[in-house]
Design a binder for these strands. Structure first.
Lengths: 205, 205
DNA sequence: TGACTGACAGATATTGAAATCTGTCAGTCA
DNA sequence: TGACTGACAGATTTCAATATCTGTCAGTCA
């Protein structure tokens, strides 16, 4: 355990391991130091606080989980299909996590609840990816003229039911897949290019 | 406190009062009995358990909170505006609760978390109201042909971000009103009558 | 007779003393 | 000299003893 010098990277790896094994409630800085064969004081030379260390672990996890989504956002799939694929992948990734390893997922969630800043940035990056798909779709004529960032936020909000971890208890309900497909259909219909002149009884305020 | 005979109604009123004052964590059956000037054994002649009593209180609260929404669903406002009004009212009611009396709201939420059954029924009733608005809109030609119950669920899911109590911590963020308006616009666009023949690169599976 | 009481068993919650943890820093050691 | 240690103060958590609560039921009383 005591190879080479102590680096932030080695501490991060150990912290991740300790968090996995002990869970967010029991993992202590002393545990991390012990796993590295150093005193806990040494950890504080590289991370200002326990909170900072946990946040760094969280950021690593978030960055890794973003990679496949980024790849989709950058792909050349036609924008409507790309958007579908992006959201389906997001949802599936979360589902796999929660159903596959609930304890680890709970650990994630606990760290996320502590680190509002990191989460806000993560959400912003996700919405940027959506916005880039929307912009491509507007350019190609697959979507109607719209403000990509604002519409991205609307889409992200609209699908929160299916990706926000706090609602994961709903993800096992019957008809969940159909409900998600239904929602994507509705949203994509709302993004479609301007229809025939809208017939309205009153100009919708 | 010891007027007339002991009825379920009097017990419910006392229980509601005790819950308000002590909160969901401290309110006990003994407290309720004390407020009524009877022994706690008497309470069990009318309610099978503490859980049943709490659920009855919750059902009362839910029924009261539904009334204004039911009125809107039954109104003759043109369906698109009616749908907007319904969701805006739902959102505003929740916001008023959470911002106006957070402790009471927390009490609600705690009871709701215990009573899955009652909540499921409540959600079903809400979605029935939405479906009735949708059906009216389909009939009038304001909405495209769609399956009202399925679309109602999609709409309810899509707006969860703005009405699900577990997400109330987001309701104070800047731009919240704009985001909600944006989402409603997108959803209503998705409900609009069939546009010009949809141009698609691939038939969207 | 039937609504109500109150004592009881087992389950749950509270409490405060003891243990552990976080974050600091003067001192060690290579 | 500078990475690391380990003892320390104050904050937080644990744990077991104690108190309270839930749900039952034989018995009271009007």
């Amino acid at each position: 355990m005591n190879d080479s010098v102590l680096t932030p990277e080695r501490i991060l790896a150990a912290a991740e391991d300790v968090l996995r094994r002990y869970g967010p409630g029991k993992a202590t800085v002393v545990d991390v130091a012990q796993a590295l064969g150093v005193s806990h004081g040494s950890v504080y030379r590289h991370f200002a606080s326990k909170a900072a260390l946990r946040e760094a672990v969280l950021r690593g996890w978030l960055a890794r989980s973003m990679a496949p989504l980024q790849a989709i956002a950058n792909s050349r799939t036609p924008p409507p299909a790309r958007l579908r694929q992006w959201f389906s992948t997001l949802r599936q990734a979360k589902r796999d996590n929660v159903l596959g390893d609930p304890e680890l997922f709970a650990t994630y969630s606990a760290l996320a609840a502590e680190a509002g800043e990191a989460i806000a940035e993560h959400k912003a990056r996700m919405q940027q990816q959506i916005a880039s798909i929307l912009a491509a779709g507007v350019a190609s004529g697959d979507f109607r003229a719209l403000d990509p960032p604002a519409a991205a936020r609307a889409l992200f909000d609209a699908t929160a039911r299916f990706h926000y971890p706090g609602l994961s208890h709903l993800w096992n309900q019957p008809g969940e897949d159909a409900a998600f497909a239904q929602l994507l259909d509705l949203l994509l219909a709302g993004l479609a290019p301007a229809p025939a002149p809208t017939r309205r009884r009153k100009p919708a305020r």
